[in-house]
Amino acid sequence: MYDLETRRRTLALVARGHSLNSVSRMTGVSRSAIRAWRTRIEPGRDVRACTGRASGPAYAYLLGLYLGDGCISPQPRGGYALRIACGDAWPGLIDACEEAVRAVRPGNAVCRVHTQGCTMVTSYSNHWPCLFPQHGPGRKHERRIVLEPWQQAVVDEHPWDFVRGLIHSDGSRVVNHTTRIVAGEPRRYEYPRYFFTNRSEDIRRLCTDTLDALGVAWKRANACNISVARRESVALMDRFVGPKH
C-alpha cells in the first residue's frame, strides 16, 4: 500500500499540470490509483485482518521470483494484483510459480495471462503489499530493496528455495565449450556455470549474501552479472537449484 506522503507527492505532480499518463510513468503508480486518490487521499482500512507475513519454502521461492520478475499493482476496485512474469520457454517454471502462489495464499484464485513469449502468473489479494513490503513506486533497481527481519528469517531457514527463485527468475545455467590439445589430439571440454543478472545492487547482494552462507563460490562477471563457475559450487547449484525447464 502506498503511504500518505507518496500519495501527496504524486498528486502534487498532477496539480502542476502533468497528465495522468506522465505522472504514472514517473512514479510507477497506476492511473486508476491516481484518479482514486484525487477523490480520497487517505489509505482505506482493510476490513479483513492482514496476515502480515508468511513462512516456509514456498514463500522463500516466491520471494526470489518476485524480486526478479514480479510486480504488485493496486486495482481500481480495491485490492492488489501480484504478477510474476515467466517465459513461455520454461513451462515447468510457470507451474512451479503457480504452485508457490497457491501455497502462500491458498484462499486466492490464481490465473495465467498470456502475452507474447511470456505468461503472467497473476493473483489478487488485499495482502500482497504486506507479504512483499519491497513493493513501491518505480523500478526496483531505482530504489532501495531491503528484506524485513521476518523475511530474512525465512531466507535463513530456506536459503536454497530463495536462491532457486532468484535463478529461475533472473538467472540461467549455461554450458561453455573449449577445445584443448591432449597427447596431440584435440579434446572438447564442457564447463557448466550459473549466472544471476539483475540491475539492482541490493538484489544482487541478497543473492550473493545467501550464496556465501551456503558456501557457494561466486564472482562478479560484470556490473549486473554474478557468476558461479567453480566445479564444486556448480555441483551444489545443480543439486539444489537446477536449470529452468
Rank of each mutant, 00 (worst) to 15 (best):
R231N: 01
F196S: 07
A183D: 15
S233D: 02
N225Q: 08
K219V: 09
G184S: 06
A221H: 12
F195D: 05
N222F: 00
T179V: 14
F240H: 13
S200T: 11
L236Y: 06
T208N: 10
R180S: 05
A235L: 11
A183T: 12
T197D: 03
V228D: 01
R188D: 03
V216W: 02
I226E: 01
L211K: 12
V234S: 04
A217Q: 07
V234N: 03
S200K: 13
T178S: 15
D209E: 13
R230T: 05
K219Y: 00
G215P: 12
D238Q: 10
R187H: 12
Y191F: 15
R205M: 00
M237K: 11
E185N: 13
E190D: 10
N198V: 05
D209P: 10
R193S: 07
D202S: 15
V241A: 06
L211D: 03
L214S: 09
C207A: 10
E190R: 15
Y189H: 14
A221D: 05
I203W: 03
T208M: 09
I203N: 05
G215W: 00
N198L: 06
R199G: 08
N198T: 08
R204W: 00
A221L: 14
T197Y: 00
N225M: 08
G215S: 07
D238M: 07
E232K: 15
I226Y: 02
V228K: 11
R231V: 04
P186M: 09
F240E: 03
D212L: 14
R199E: 07
M237R: 11
A223W: 02
I226W: 01
V228S: 08
I226S: 06
L211I: 09
R220E: 05
L214Q: 13
E185G: 06
Y194M: 08
C207I: 01
R231A: 07
W218D: 05
E232H: 15
C224P: 00
L206D: 01
Y189D: 13
R199I: 04
